[in-house]
Simulated scan of single mutants.
Amino acid sequence: MGVLSGGVYGVDPTSQRCENSAQCENQLTDGAMTINPAGGLGLFNFGLLDTHFSERDREVRLIAATASSGQSFGFGVDETTALMVDAKAPFENVSFTVLGEGGVFIVDMSKGKEDITHSRNGSKRIIAGEASYLPANSSGQITLGELKLTLESLEKPASFKRNEQGKWRQESGNLCRSKGMIRWQNGGNIHVLQPSEASRFHKLRYCAYSKVPFVIYD
C-alpha cells in the first residue's frame, strides 16, 4: 500500500517497539506517513524539505505531504547536494541555487489540488500539481507565492547508475526524449506527467525539467 492509500497524519509515528496493536498509541494503517505540522527548526519557512531524495524514490511521499500539510512548495534534496537559500526581509521573496553532484526535486502545489472520495470500497485520493527537477547551477525564486525557475547546464553532470535511481527518476527520464505524456504504475499508484507550454527540459546524463504538470492517483 502506498502513501496515497495510507494517508498523511500530523501525529507522532507508531513506536517500532510496538508489538501488540491493542497497546499501541497512534496505530496507523500500512503505508501511512507522519509529519510534524509545526515544522522543524524554523530556519526554512518556504515549504517542506526532504533529503536523500531521488535515490530513495521519495517524490510521491513529498507530494502527498506537501498537499496534506497545505504548503505550496516541497523541496527534495538529493545526496551530496545542497540547496543554497538567500532570504531577506520581507520573507515573501526568496531566491535559491542548487549546488553539488545531484539535483533538487520541487513540487509546486500553489495552483494544485488534492481530492479524496469515499465509497464502500474505501477512499480514493488524487493529487495534481507541477513538478521540477533542477541540476546543480540551476536557480529559482519565490516571489509573492509564485515560483520561477531557471535550468542551467553543467560541464560535468553527475552520472547516476540505474540501480541508484528511484522509479520516478527512471520514468521521468523519458520526458527529455519524448517531451510528451509519461505514465507508469508503482506502489499501487498511477503517475502521469503531462508537459505543458511552460515546461522546460535539459538533457544531461539524466533528465532535468521544470514546471511539468503531474497527476497521481490510487
Rank of each mutant, 00 (worst) to 15 (best):
residue 89 A to H: 08
residue 22 A to T: 13
residue 153 S to L: 01
residue 128 A to L: 01
residue 132 S to N: 03
residue 201 F to H: 11
residue 118 H to Q: 14
residue 99 L to M: 10
residue 97 T to V: 12
residue 77 V to G: 08
residue 132 S to V: 08
residue 183 R to S: 14
residue 136 A to G: 07
residue 161 K to M: 10
residue 61 R to K: 14
residue 90 P to D: 14
residue 55 E to R: 05
residue 141 Q to W: 10
residue 118 H to T: 13
residue 99 L to D: 09
residue 2 G to M: 00
residue 44 F to S: 05
residue 196 S to F: 09
residue 198 A to Y: 04
residue 32 A to K: 02
residue 60 V to G: 02
residue 56 R to G: 07
residue 120 R to Y: 01
residue 94 V to N: 07
residue 187 G to F: 00
residue 103 G to L: 06
residue 26 N to L: 09
residue 52 H to R: 09
residue 194 Q to E: 15
residue 100 G to W: 00
residue 209 Y to G: 08
residue 103 G to C: 10
residue 185 Q to Y: 12
residue 117 T to Y: 06
residue 12 D to W: 05
residue 206 Y to G: 07
residue 85 V to I: 15
residue 195 P to A: 10
residue 179 K to T: 12
residue 104 V to N: 07
residue 166 G to D: 12
residue 184 W to A: 04
residue 151 L to K: 08
residue 209 Y to M: 08
residue 34 T to N: 11
residue 182 I to P: 03
residue 176 C to A: 11
residue 167 K to R: 14
residue 80 T to P: 00
residue 100 G to C: 10
residue 212 V to I: 04
residue 16 Q to K: 14
residue 118 H to P: 01
residue 172 S to Q: 10
residue 161 K to I: 00
residue 216 I to K: 06
residue 134 L to H: 08
residue 87 A to Q: 04
residue 135 P to V: 07
residue 192 V to P: 02
residue 132 S to Q: 00
residue 20 N to Q: 14
residue 56 R to T: 07
residue 171 E to V: 00
residue 167 K to T: 12
residue 114 E to F: 00
residue 94 V to I: 15
residue 6 G to P: 12
residue 127 I to N: 02
residue 173 G to H: 11
residue 166 G to S: 10
residue 19 E to D: 11
residue 177 R to P: 05
residue 65 A to I: 01
residue 136 A to F: 04
residue 154 L to Y: 03
residue 90 P to K: 03
residue 102 G to V: 05
residue 159 S to L: 13
residue 181 M to D: 11
residue 150 T to R: 03
residue 14 T to M: 15
residue 203 K to S: 11
residue 81 T to A: 05
residue 209 Y to L: 02
residue 162 R to H: 11
residue 194 Q to S: 13
residue 202 H to M: 15
residue 133 Y to F: 11
residue 114 E to V: 01
residue 59 E to M: 03
residue 192 V to H: 06
residue 18 C to T: 10
residue 121 N to W: 10
residue 83 L to V: 10
residue 31 G to P: 15
residue 175 L to W: 00
residue 11 V to K: 14
residue 161 K to L: 13
residue 26 N to H: 15
residue 44 F to K: 04
residue 9 Y to M: 04
residue 55 E to Q: 08
residue 153 S to R: 15
residue 62 L to C: 07
residue 92 E to K: 13
residue 81 T to M: 04
residue 159 S to E: 14
residue 44 F to E: 07
residue 34 T to S: 12
residue 111 K to V: 01
residue 5 S to L: 11
residue 36 N to Q: 13
residue 147 L to H: 09
residue 33 M to E: 15
residue 86 D to H: 01
residue 58 R to H: 13
residue 12 D to F: 11
residue 32 A to C: 12
residue 78 D to A: 02
residue 189 N to T: 14
residue 213 P to S: 01
residue 187 G to D: 03
residue 100 G to D: 10
residue 202 H to D: 09
residue 85 V to R: 04
residue 197 E to K: 14
residue 36 N to R: 14
residue 197 E to V: 03
residue 62 L to Q: 06
residue 195 P to F: 10
